[in-house]
Design a protein around this nucleic acid. Structure first.
Lengths: 141, 141
DNA sequence: GTAACTGCAAACGCTTTGCACTCCC
DNA sequence: GGGAGTGCAAAGCGTTTGCAGTTAC
């Protein structure tokens, strides 16, 4: 799922939380929020290097950490060693191809219903969740 | 959940798959299979160093990779940088405390039923899965 | 006897940190 | 003007790799 925020909403969010608005921040933020495939730090970095040739990996890491703090994205580690960033904090299933590593999101109403049952059985207040299914995607079969 | 295999079953499993049986392998394997809390490589290493003072981290890594290949355990990465090993390949929920990092397994029949529904909706043959819930455990509240 | 395994140490890759320079406000 | 953010490079740290010595079979 792609979460839409316009520039002004992003700018307000940064300012409200006491952070300055920079071109890099906006660019990283807009890039990650527009992608449904959980890019890695490196992918963000290389994609933005085209329009922002001086951008650094450090800035990408720091900004993505900031976005996690602000509750806009979730960091995920799969079995590869790098971090991936998921802009969807709502309940969904990460369908991970074990061959090519592509990730497809899957959302359905019945998942939410089932989840509600589980949470109520557990009697806890969850702060987040993650559901993965590992499979071989059509391209890799 | 703790999966029980006796020594002879382990030994047979190694031999059947063309691997030699060594004291280190047996020890690492028995240790990880007996633990429900998803130890890290380092934890395995330090725990075994008591009885096997010459054991090395490299051997622990290699053996745990081997156990994953044999289908006995699953590697999991959480937001910490290290790898954790889960000896339960059956469907369960990893309840992860966001403060202390402890992991509790949760299993219930209705989860399996719900899961079956989702899988059949998706129309895929999953090769594995992972379900996490992040929360604050009683000790950390 | 020999092929596989262990232990050690070096190499590796991703992430974090420190710091001088820059830019937002 | 001042403090936060950027870019760069170095440091950090968990993991992997290579290899000589050892052990299972």
């Amino acid at each position: 799922m792609v979460i839409w925020m316009d520039d002004q909403e992003l700018i307000d969010l940064f300012r409200e939380n006491g952070f300055k608005v920079t071109a890099q921040r906006l660019a990283i933020c807009k890039f990650i929020l527009s992608r449904g495939d959980h890019p890695s730090t490196d992918q963000v970095y290389h994609a933005l290097k085209i329009d922002y040739p001086t951008i650094s990996l450090g800035t990408v890491y720091k900004t993505l950490d900031l976005l996690e703090e602000l509750g806009l994205i979730q960091k995920l580690r799969f079995n590869e060693s790098n971090i991936r960033y998921d802009p969807d904090l709502q309940l969904h299933i990460n369908m991970v191809c074990t061959k090519c590593g592509k990730i497809y999101d899957y959302k359905a109403e019945n998942i939410q219903n089932m989840w509600n049952v589980i949470i109520s059985d557990l009697g806890i207040k969850p702060k987040g969740q993650r559901i993965d299914i590992y499979f071989e995607c059509d391209d890799c079969k």
